[in-house]
Simulated scan of single mutants.
Amino acid sequence: MFLPLHDGVPLQHMKTPVVARSIIIACTLFYAVYILDPRGPDEMVGGFSLIPSVLFGLESLPEGYPYVPVWMTLFTNIFVHGSWFHLIGNMLFLWVFGDNVEDAMGHLRFLLFFLLCGAIASLAHALTSFYVGGAAPIGDVTLLPPNRPLIGASGAVSGIVAAYLILYPRVRIWALFLNGLPLRLPAYWTIGFWFALQFISAFLGSDDSVGWFAHLGGFLIGAILTPIMRRRYDPVLARVQAQELQAPR
């Protein structure tokens, strides 16, 4: 287990991470609908989740599903979460890491970055699900293996984690490890530990209900996009920021 708690990195270019907070609100509202809809959670899953076989045209859902064009489920699944733990875990990562990544990119580029990481992570899951997936019901329909629905912001958040690692590798982060052990370690250690867990879980199949390859795909595309989408690099400013971040707190 790894849960980030606090990093203490001040914002340099903006006062409020508007996009990161808006995404947290949007995901929370989606979850409220998910649990309060009298028709049951299957409605949200069938309407907005990514289902690989449906995406690739191998199967179809009952009439009326999904609620958006099939290709858009690459994006809409990001905002749907299946439990409070699922929601809070993803939003905690977004809260701790997202503000500084948004600060480094700007509002619009950060929003685009988040959506691209989420969509490509979803596509990575779809492509690999034919090898690692399992059966799952949607309403009255049981989808054949390997077409388990994908929901959650984990892939997009993984891209943000990769961006944070590139931008702030030596920043010390307070986090809970394993059985809740609090430690304050550099980002390259904490995120490196997190990535190792994702990689091992993806290839050893510790829990096939989790989209591990979405996490890996999001992390990879996040690492690729960060140098392209960050603000113009200023070596003088970078040195000043590095000194501030490494100062004792």
Rank of each mutant, 00 (worst) to 15 (best):
L3G: 05
P4S: 04
L5H: 07
H6S: 09
H6R: 11
P10M: 09
L11H: 07
Q12K: 13
H13R: 15
K15I: 05
K15F: 07
T16Y: 14
P17H: 10
V19R: 01
V19L: 08
A20W: 00
R21Q: 13
I23Q: 10
I25D: 09
L29I: 15
F30L: 10
Y31A: 06
Y31F: 15
A32K: 04
V33M: 13
Y34G: 03
I35E: 14
P38C: 14
P41E: 13
E43C: 03
M44R: 04
V45P: 00
V45N: 01
G46Y: 07
F48L: 15
V54P: 00
L55N: 00
L61P: 03
Y65Q: 05
Y65P: 00
V68S: 08
M72Y: 05
M72E: 11
T73N: 11
T73Y: 09
F75C: 08
T76D: 03
I78P: 01
F85C: 07
I88T: 08
G89C: 05
N90T: 08
N90H: 10
N90E: 14
M91S: 13
L92I: 10
L94N: 05
W95Q: 05
G98K: 03
G98D: 06
V101S: 10
G106W: 09
G106T: 12
L108Y: 12
L111K: 04
L112K: 06
G118L: 12
L123E: 14
T128P: 01
T128S: 14
S129P: 01
S129T: 05
F130E: 12
Y131R: 11
G133Y: 04
G134I: 13
G134P: 00
A135I: 15
D140F: 10
V141Y: 12
T142F: 11
T142C: 02
L143A: 08
L143E: 06
R148S: 07
P149Y: 01
P149E: 05
L150E: 11
S154F: 08
G155Y: 12
G155P: 08
V157T: 11
G159A: 13
I160L: 11
A162H: 02
A163S: 12
Y164I: 00
Y164M: 01
L165Y: 01
I166K: 10
L167Y: 05
Y168P: 02
R172L: 14
I173Y: 04
W174S: 10
L178C: 08
P182N: 13
P182Q: 14
P182Y: 14
P182I: 09
A187V: 03
A187H: 01
T190F: 14
I191C: 05
L197C: 08
L197E: 09
F199W: 11
I200P: 04
I200D: 10
A202D: 03
G205L: 14
S206P: 00
S206D: 09
D207W: 05
D207K: 02
D208C: 02
D208V: 12
W212M: 06
F213D: 01
H215M: 11
H215T: 07
G218H: 06
I221D: 04
A223V: 02
T226L: 06
I228P: 02
M229V: 04
M229E: 06
R231W: 08
R232A: 13
P235L: 05
V236C: 00
A238C: 06
R239E: 15
R239L: 13
Q241E: 14
A242R: 10
Q243P: 02
R249V: 15
